[in-house]
């Protein structure tokens, strides 16, 4: 018999992770896309490589590298540990996993959309006395809203389905860091096929929902 909490606990955890990841993706991804859209940026290749890497690098390997980096003895982990923020086997680890996995899907399409924005309209904003940054936030970004949301949706979906990095950083602790995807894995491992089926079914429904929204946004993009 499936207990309700077996279903709701991983779901709530996954949604919490996705929510925080999405907010961070928006906060980090938009400035990154803005920077990368500039052709003459110094060290652009380095930034581009770092952002794109998780797309081609095996997630488990990324997870392992992050484990070394974010551990209490790692460069970054050591720094955060002083403020009592820990990533390994903790909720923050799940968020980092979601953000790292989703970032390329957020940044790359957005970067392309910024580049395709008509130069003349940007110049009209400069002639109106507006700086590059003002132009970006008040003219470019509002006009590529559909692309922005499509990118965010795609990146969030990726964050929701993240397994490899999440496993390495979160440790798959039941009741603490077992997201829906990991909960399915655990259920199958324990022979609880019914539970695995229910959780998978929920993920399918959510994915379909995302797909429909993406389709809607794509349509809007071509219209506007």
């Amino acid at each position: 018999m499936i207990e309700l909490e077996q279903v709701t606990a991983p779901l709530i955890l996954s949604f919490k992770t996705m929510g925080v990841s999405s907010a961070l993706l928006l906060l980090i991804g938009v400035p990154l896309a803005f920077l990368l859209s500039k052709k003459r940026l110094r060290f652009r290749w380095l930034l581009d490589t770092l952002v794109t890497l998780p797309l081609v690098f095996p997630p488990i390997a990324v997870g392992f590298l992050l484990l070394l980096l974010l551990g209490e003895n790692g460069w970054i982990g050591g720094f955060f540990a002083r403020f009592d923020i820990r990533f390994i086997f903790d909720f923050y680890g799940l968020v980092v996993a979601g953000v790292i996995a989703g970032l390329p899907l957020m940044v790359k399409p957005l970067e392309a959309a910024i580049r395709l924005f008509p130069e003349e309209i940007k110049e009209a904003a400069y002639m109106s006395g507006k700086s590059d940054l003002q132009t970006f936030f008040r003219v470019v970004l509002p006009n590529i809203k559909a692309s922005l949301f499509a990118a965010l949706l795609l990146a969030s979906a990726r964050a929701l389905g993240e397994v490899g990095i999440t496993l390495m950083l979160g440790g798959n602790i039941i009741g603490k860091t077992d997201t829906v995807s990991l909960a399915i894995y655990n259920a199958v491992f324990d022979g609880e096929y019914d539970l695995a089926m229910v959780l998978s079914g929920i993920l399918v429904v959510i994915s379909l929902l995302f797909f429909v929204m993406l389709h809607f946004l794509e349509k809007k993009k071509t219209l506007g």
């Binding site: 008509p118 003349e120 309209i121 110049e123 009209a124 904003a125 400069y126 002639m127 006395g129 507006k130 700086s131 003219v139 509002p142 006009n143 506007g224």
Partner: peptide, 18 residues
């Protein structure tokens, strides 16, 4: 260009669509 106080009319209007 921001500091030149120039009005510029583009051939293709270049209005802010939003």
């Amino acid at each position: 260009p921001q500091k030149r106080k120039i009005g510029f009319v583009f051939q293709d209007y270049a209005l802010f669509p939003n």
